[in-house]
Design a protein around this nucleic acid. Sequence first.
DNA 1: ACATATTCGTTGCATAAGCAACGATTGTCA
DNA 2: TGACAATCGTTGCTTATGCAACGAATATGT
Lengths: 144, 144
Amino acid sequence: MSFDLDQFLPYRLSVAAAQVSRRFAALYGAEAGLTVPEWRVLAHLHKSEPVSVRDITVRVNLEKSIVSRAASRLEQEGLVRKSGHESDRRLIALALTRKGRDLMRRLGPIAQDFQTQLTAELGPDAEGLQRALTRLIARDTPPK
Amino acid sequence: MSFDLDQFLPYRLSVAAAQVSRRFAALYGAEAGLTVPEWRVLAHLHKSEPVSVRDITVRVNLEKSIVSRAASRLEQEGLVRKSGHESDRRLIALALTRKGRDLMRRLGPIAQDFQTQLTAELGPDAEGLQRALTRLIARDTPPK
DNA sequence: ACATATTCGTTGCATAAGCAACGATTGTCA
DNA sequence: TGACAATCGTTGCTTATGCAACGAATATGT
């Protein structure tokens, strides 16, 4: 009996994740053309700022070079402001600009609605999915 | 109340998928240095061959250019053979070589074992996860 | 205090992904 | 049959990713 890719969990997870990401990107694409890293940085800043690049890499599971470049792009678009940390001059303090906050005020509800819709689609399996994801993420070795 | 990325399903799915992929790559990395597309192509060929590039793009959720390049690399490494389709000369028939079949004979059990281990880790939530993934994948708009 | 190690953010470089365009072939339909 | 459209696989090009290396700043240990 031969191995069946269609039943293989890593494959299924990857396809599902890509699929869900595409759907979500289509939703916020109307409001702003963001990459996934850019979205994650904004979302994290929205709930806690100011914060360093390093903090973000740890909290949103992105490599530091990716966060660095995403932050630069966001700064260039006027969504994020970079300033020096007071006591530790190695650190950079990232914060949302007024424009960035406005954008997140529109994107937040979109994300919430999408989450609600997904949960509805999944019905009774939504909880099991969340628990399973928690377990998988828990043993995280973050990307460098 | 502010949006929380840590509870956002697209984010959680993406992190979990990346995490599981890394773990699996570490396992088969000892046997062969394959990229994800290469692994998927081999896995699909293992269960049905010969098959065209187009077939693979549809069945393993990869864009055709990615499959094309993966197939070329695999051919160069002697794992896959390309030959012309008999009646339709636009098509290419991909098949495993002896070496490719041998590799998959080693990789198949590794994948199975990993699946078993994951299922064990997830315990009672494994089923809910699989059902949820099935639902998410079902409404698939494949990548091009 | 001083040499050394470590951390932070950026950048360079090699590889991968995503999309459009292309030549070659086959399908469609008037 | 013959023009036109559609499909297949490859390739070019732009952008994204992942890793290593770097300069600057701070921590550490003797």
